[in-house]
Design a protein around this nucleic acid. Sequence first.
DNA 1: AAAATAGTTCAAGTTTTTTTGAACAAACTG
DNA 2: CAGTTTGTTCAAAAAAACTTGAACTATTTT
Lengths: 180, 180
Amino acid sequence: MNAFSVTNQSPSKALDDWENAVIDLFLNAANSFGLPKSYGQIYGLLFCRDQPLAMDEIMELLKISKGSASQGLRALRQLGAVSSVFAPGDRRERYIAECRLRKLVGGFLREQADPHLEKGTARLNQIEKLVNNLQDEGSRKRGVRRHEILSGWHRQMSRLLPWVKMIVGKSDRLPQKNSE
Amino acid sequence: MNAFSVTNQSPSKALDDWENAVIDLFLNAANSFGLPKSYGQIYGLLFCRDQPLAMDEIMELLKISKGSASQGLRALRQLGAVSSVFAPGDRRERYIAECRLRKLVGGFLREQADPHLEKGTARLNQIEKLVNNLQDEGSRKRGVRRHEILSGWHRQMSRLLPWVKMIVGKSDRLPQKNSE
DNA sequence: AAAATAGTTCAAGTTTTTTTGAACAAACTG
DNA sequence: CAGTTTGTTCAAAAAAACTTGAACTATTTT
């Protein structure tokens, strides 16, 4: 048949088709969440693998630069989406993906949503102050009304986040062998 | 405070400070949700106003181009964040902001999240097919495992969205004399 | 029907974000 | 300690996203 290929015996040299498909899925997901696509690629690759990978392996498999790999891994660790391990007798750090959705969502909310809510509080206070300074009765009333609406939204969003963490955490990894 | 100002008698000529603050808030919010900042500005302006505004007024107040205004208004209508009305005896369309958070969230999920979930289904099917074609027993098992995890995530996300709509809908505008 | 008004489209220009790679720092090795 | 390996940083290049404005369609007015 074919001298090469067949079963892909070299584990760290090239990606399987399904791995490329998964990586591409995470690339798109990262984009939708406002993260650089390289973050998605790195996470996707690690997600596919059982064994932890070192940075230079990631660079080679994904064909991305040292800088991207370094920055991507740092951000993913910060989000709790990736953690590092040390193989005994090897100096390099190696990385694995966090596969529990609850942890991923939790990290994302902690790093992205929570800061926005905090900034929101500050902005609302500023708006309230500006509104209260208005001289014209009608304008002030309109401004007060708008500030009230925004405060209500802010409160609702703050309420929502804990629920999201709960609901996603419910049944994490699939209950092992389970047919649809 | 402000040399001019006093009561700002020209309604369609300039923005109040608080309006600028609100517009800026929505500009930032739009960014975080992956929407162009001009969309946020337009929504923010309409959100501040009691009276509907025409496109050329929006262009002038925000200093944005015809193209941005047109495209922004179209997208916002598509999201259900803005609706148009016709003032009697005026040919121009005029726009108002939807201020019910439930509607805004619903529209956003419908336009952004739902399509992603659908594409996700397709991608998962593709991955499943690729995985099942694998010859090597070990690789296939790993692939199957990953596909199961992703399917579980997908299912959880699908479950989450209805809850989000519910929770946000709970107490919409602040409990106040609501007219509508 | 010509002129004026409203609004859309899209190629080109601008701005912002992401990626790259060379220079650097830190930690190990012989 | 000099050399090697591992990983970080950041200025510049590349890519992606957004905005602009002129040309265009459609509708209304004179």
